[in-house]
Computed example of a mutant assay.
Amino acid sequence: MRIVVGITGASGSLYGYTLIRTLHQLGVEIHLVATEMGEKVMQFECGVNIKELKQYATVHRNDNLFASVASGSFKTDGMVIVPCSMNSLGAIANGVGDTLLSRAASVVMKEKRNLIIVPREAPFHLIHLKNMTTLAESGVTILPASPGFYHRPTEIWELVNFMVARILDELGIENDLMERWGEKK
Results as ranks from 00 to 15, higher is better:
2 R>S: 13
6 G>T: 13
7 I>G: 09
8 T>Y: 00
10 A>R: 01
10 A>V: 07
10 A>T: 04
11 S>R: 04
12 G>N: 05
17 Y>P: 00
18 T>C: 11
18 T>Q: 12
19 L>F: 05
21 R>A: 10
21 R>H: 11
22 T>M: 07
23 L>K: 09
24 H>M: 09
26 L>E: 14
27 G>W: 01
28 V>G: 01
29 E>A: 12
31 H>W: 04
32 L>Q: 08
33 V>N: 05
36 E>K: 14
37 M>T: 13
37 M>E: 10
38 G>F: 00
40 K>A: 14
40 K>I: 12
40 K>Y: 07
41 V>Q: 02
41 V>F: 00
41 V>A: 01
41 V>W: 00
43 Q>M: 15
46 C>M: 08
47 G>Y: 01
49 N>L: 15
49 N>S: 15
50 I>W: 06
51 K>M: 13
52 E>G: 15
54 K>Q: 13
54 K>P: 03
62 N>F: 06
62 N>G: 11
63 D>F: 09
63 D>M: 09
64 N>R: 13
65 L>I: 15
66 F>S: 15
66 F>D: 15
68 S>L: 15
68 S>P: 15
69 V>K: 07
69 V>C: 12
70 A>R: 12
70 A>M: 10
71 S>G: 12
72 G>C: 03
72 G>N: 05
75 K>S: 13
77 D>A: 08
77 D>C: 07
85 S>D: 06
85 S>Q: 04
86 M>H: 02
86 M>K: 03
88 S>P: 12
90 G>Y: 01
91 A>Y: 09
91 A>P: 08
92 I>A: 08
92 I>D: 07
93 A>S: 09
94 N>H: 10
94 N>L: 06
96 V>G: 03
96 V>D: 03
100 L>G: 10
101 L>T: 15
101 L>W: 08
101 L>G: 10
101 L>D: 15
103 R>M: 11
104 A>Q: 11
107 V>T: 11
109 M>G: 05
110 K>H: 01
111 E>W: 03
112 K>F: 05
114 N>E: 14
114 N>Q: 14
115 L>T: 07
115 L>M: 03
116 I>E: 03
116 I>S: 05
118 V>I: 11
120 R>F: 03
120 R>H: 06
121 E>A: 04
122 A>V: 07
123 P>S: 06
123 P>Y: 01
124 F>M: 04
126 L>Q: 08
128 H>Q: 05
128 H>E: 07
131 N>V: 09
131 N>W: 06
132 M>Y: 01
134 T>E: 13
134 T>C: 06
134 T>N: 13
135 L>W: 01
142 I>V: 04
143 L>T: 03
144 P>W: 00
144 P>E: 00
145 A>I: 06
145 A>N: 11
146 S>M: 10
151 H>L: 04
151 H>T: 02
153 P>K: 02
155 E>M: 06
155 E>L: 13
157 W>G: 11
160 V>F: 00
161 N>S: 11
161 N>A: 07
163 M>F: 04
163 M>V: 13
164 V>I: 09
164 V>H: 02
165 A>W: 00
165 A>I: 02
166 R>D: 02
167 I>D: 06
167 I>P: 06
168 L>M: 09
170 E>S: 14
170 E>V: 04
177 L>H: 10
177 L>G: 13
178 M>I: 12
178 M>Q: 12
180 R>P: 10
180 R>K: 15
181 W>G: 11
